[in-house]
Design a protein around this nucleic acid. Structure first.
Lengths: 343, 343
DNA sequence: TGTTAGCACTCTTAGATAATGAGTGCTAAC
DNA sequence: GTTAGCACTCATTATCTAAGAGTGCTAACA
């Protein structure tokens, strides 16, 4: 059996209706609301075909039809018209995400915007800190035997960690180490800094002053701990708006998953091919998302992928609007982050 | 009517039973489980009295009794024995919260611990940054016309903000400003720094070099923005464990409130008298918490209150255990934070 | 051959009714 | 003052029925 134009129209109508009402759609409803110029009986025949093709299904005998995962897939691939955000939304995005913001803020803002515009749950993975470039390190004594190591990067991200300092290291020693490090590492990416740290520096310093190399070890550890992408989350409460999640247990499971940053990071990294990406229902690897659809897209600078934006909603999702929002945000992030991450 | 010893025992039994089962308690149950040496009929009489006293109530005629807010209040004030955390829990607390941690980490850790140990929702307000003392400020150029201002405090907290720098300020100018600020402000509390910034410094600098005073304005703004206590939240999903919150709407409202950091901050600051504090049901000002009880306590250093710890659960709460946990954590926090906040 | 009207059939949902059972309050006896 | 006995209340559950939405099939129609 083939999809002809009328079948497409019927499927499209079913999906549009179900997306907005969340109720199974009957033949009469379609005949009434979407004038295809044929009677309910004809539509019933078409629906029967669509069911055989696997695009729609009945929750039970003699209820209306609801789209299947496959139906949504066909809709997204072949029927849906891609749309743009409207002008006022575009303005909001551009004005909210500008290069005055420190990267943390920028990411949180982007996540908030995405969930507000779509009413779904937004997730963003920030760039790995390792991909920014090193600007400066400070070692500042704050208490006897304690100092803060502060790392400033081109993204304005500041990583800091409290270090234990052995007694025999004076404030002057600390300054010396910092100055030495800064001279040597300026402008390198943090990934390279970490590589370089042990090999070259520790080497050199050991010859000159064995004392200082100890400080380096601690710093290396501090850097190692901060390597991963951060997870930003917003609009988790939007889940409650969806009738498919009126069940407490479903909400609980989903919220549970979303709170595990490692899981979220993993899921997003897995799905993040270049460009925009839609996973519908069972297409999702993680079984906690089998009721959900997830739209992801990567943002990049100079061809290098820096992070992922994700949007999670029910399979009964406004794909066109959602994709437009995700796409706009990745574009804007890519644009703004150029200043921080360009090599 | 007076509370005699037997009434107390009956009330205590009702509360203990209801806390663990969440089901209305009948006279037979009490006679069976808690051997008071009297028959159900006698207990019924006592229960009738307790109801008249306002300590228990019936959800409907001929159901068992459940404790009222007043009943819990009497229990907490007069009947309950205060307990301690057990040894293994104490060890966990002490080992998890030590002074190697940066303050942010410390707070998050404390919040997590509190919710894990109690199975309720934990909220912690961090010390206001203004109460730490100033150690050092750096102004680091990262792009043309942009610099990061980094403030390092005695708590190891690093606040950073990206500043727009006018063209005519050179890197050398920036260094000069930073050096000047550091010389002048070292050791002051951040509150005082902010006060001092405009009055003295801007004054002096204006005379010497009008250019640099502009940089100061931006820095002042950066400081202003970071003044508030941070809100740490953990164990929100524990709400789902409570049968009184099996209703989706109740969960939603509560989660909604908890996500508004300003509201939470306000509520916690309101209730935070010195020492440990229990608000039961309607005693809570915020009406979203009328089903809840909240245990709060402040932690302090050198007599100065730095922040608040809160624990939120249903009124049907294990008060004794919960209070023990809150108290232990405030003590430990007070202890650890001495190193960072002592004047 | 494709389209449509008609109709019997299915299955959920909502509402009504009845049975169950836990628990009380009251009375009278101990 | 305590207790046994008993009638009464009311939520909960199960069962049943009626209503309604929607289908699938058949037969007629263009």
């Amino acid at each position: 059996m083939q999809m002809d134009e009328r079948k497409q129209k019927v499927l499209s109508a079913i999906i549009r209706d179900y997306v907005s009402t969340a109720e199974p759609v009957g033949s009469r409803t379609i005949a009434r609301k979407y004038n295809l110029g044929v009677s309910p009986a004809t539509i019933r025949n078409e629906m029967s075909d669509l069911e055989e093709l696997g695009f729609i299904e009945q929750p039970y005998t003699s209820a209306g039809r609801i789209p299947s995962d496959g139906g949504y897939r066909y809709f997204v691939d072949c029927l849906m018209e891609r749309e743009q955000l409207n002008d006022s939304e575009l303005i909001v995005v551009r004005e909210s995400l500008h290069d005055h913001l420190e990267v943390n803020m920028l990411m949180q803002q982007a996540t908030d915007l995405l969930s507000q515009m779509t009413n779904y749950t937004a997730v963003v993975l920030s760039p790995e800190v390792g991909k920014t470039t090193f600007r400066q390190m400070q070692l500042i004594p704050i208490q006897p035997n304690k100092a803060v190591a502060v790392v400033i990067t081109s993204a304005g991200i500041v990583e800091s960690k409290i270090l234990d300092i052995p007694e025999f290291l004076s404030a002057t020693d600390l300054k010396k180490v910092a100055r030495f490090i800064n001279r040597s590492l300026m402008g390198l990416s943090l990934d390279k800094v970490r590589m370089a740290l042990f090999r070259e520096l520790a080497e050199k310093l050991k010859k000159e002053e064995q004392v200082l190399s100890q400080a380096l070890e601690v710093i290396d550890e501090a850097l190692k701990a901060e390597g991963q992408e951060r997870v930003y989350l917003s609009g988790t409460l939007n889940i409650f708006k969806q009738p498919e999640f009126k069940d407490v247990e479903k909400i609980q499971t989903l919220l549970g998953i979303l709170q595990e940053q490692n899981t979220v990071r993993h899921i997003l990294n897995e799905t993040s091919k270049h460009g925009i990406n839609v996973k519908i229902g069972l297409e999702n690897d993680h079984q906690g998302f089998r009721n959900c659809s997830m739209i992801t897209a990567t943002y990049q600078v100079d061809g290098e992928t820096l992070g992922v934006i994700g949007l999670i909603g029910p399979t009964r999702m406004e794909y066109s609007k959602a994709m437009a929002a995700v796409e706009t945000l990745t574009d804007q992030l890519s644009l703004v982050l150029r200043k921080y991450f360009r090599r």
